[in-house]
């Protein structure tokens, strides 16, 4: 590579890091947390014995999983303004990603909850716990052990999917790379840097995942 390319890379390392830290990472983290809340509610609705609630949850999951994430982003950012709902790029991205994670993670959480033996619910009931307390103290801590590996995959996918937010004008990592490369068409260099940044985040997350899994396995016979 010629020196001009190196200089271009060098000049953009910092702005791209700033975009990662101020946009990509917060976008991922906030969307993931909201997404998990949505997912838990949808999972509980899906499990519930109230027919319409369960059907609604199933419909939601089906729509989220059956439509492209890019279309979901476009609907929130470009289509809602038609109904006079105008949302800034960053919050629009948070909404779309949260709803998306909510749909995917709901099935994971549902399966994890259902994997906990009925005896755990019954034991909780006999010591006087209600539904919410049982979930919080007994079921979810155990379900977490089952859910962490697939949810980690969801999170790692989400890190990469946040690059789609560049299409709705969020100045996250990929968009900064695009803008920096545009004048000289030196896309290879800057997209390469972006790729490395994404990869580093994902490596760190994978490391965190195995740490968390070890922690959650502490009460299981090996």
């Amino acid at each position: 590579m010629d020196p001009a390319t190196w200089a271009l890379i060098w000049r953009n390392l910092w702005p791209m890091l700033v975009a990662t830290v101020t946009q990509t990472i917060p976008l991922t983290a906030i969307s993931f947390v909201f997404g998990l809340v949505v997912a838990l509610l949808v999972a509980l609705a899906r499990i519930s014995k109230t027919g319409p609630l369960s059907a609604l949850a199933r419909g939601y999951i089906s729509v989220i999983r059956g439509t492209p994430l890019l279309v979901q982003l476009f609907i929130v950012f470009y289509a809602l303004p038609q109904f006079n709902i105008v949302i800034d790029p960053f919050p629009a991205a948070v909404i779309a990603f949260s709803l998306n994670v909510g749909g995917y993670a709901a099935e994971v959480i549902r399966a994890a909850i259902l994997s906990i033996p009925k005896g755990q619910w019954e034991a909780s009931q006999t010591i006087g716990m209600g539904y919410a307390t049982t979930l919080q103290r007994v079921i979810l801590p155990q379900a977490a052990r089952v859910a962490v590996p697939p949810l980690s995959n969801t999170l790692i996918s989400l890190v990469k999917d946040t690059s789609l937010a560049s299409t709705i004008l969020v100045t996250e990592l990929l968009r900064v790379a695009q803008l920096a490369a545009a004048p000289t068409f030196d896309f290879f260099a800057l997209y390469g840097v972006a790729a490395v940044y994404y990869w580093v985040i994902c490596v760190i997350l994978s490391f965190g995942q195995s740490r968390l899994e070890t922690r959650l396995e502490r009460y299981v016979a090996r």
Binding site: E122, A123, Q125, G128, Y219
Partner: peptide, 20 residues
């Protein structure tokens, strides 16, 4: 809830909380 609190139950399969 009051009725349940009157008795304690020991299960065949103990049903202890494994994470505690």
């Amino acid at each position: 809830a009051r009725f349940r609190a009157q008795s304690g139950m020991v299960f065949q399969a103990h049903n202890l909380f494994p994470h505690m």
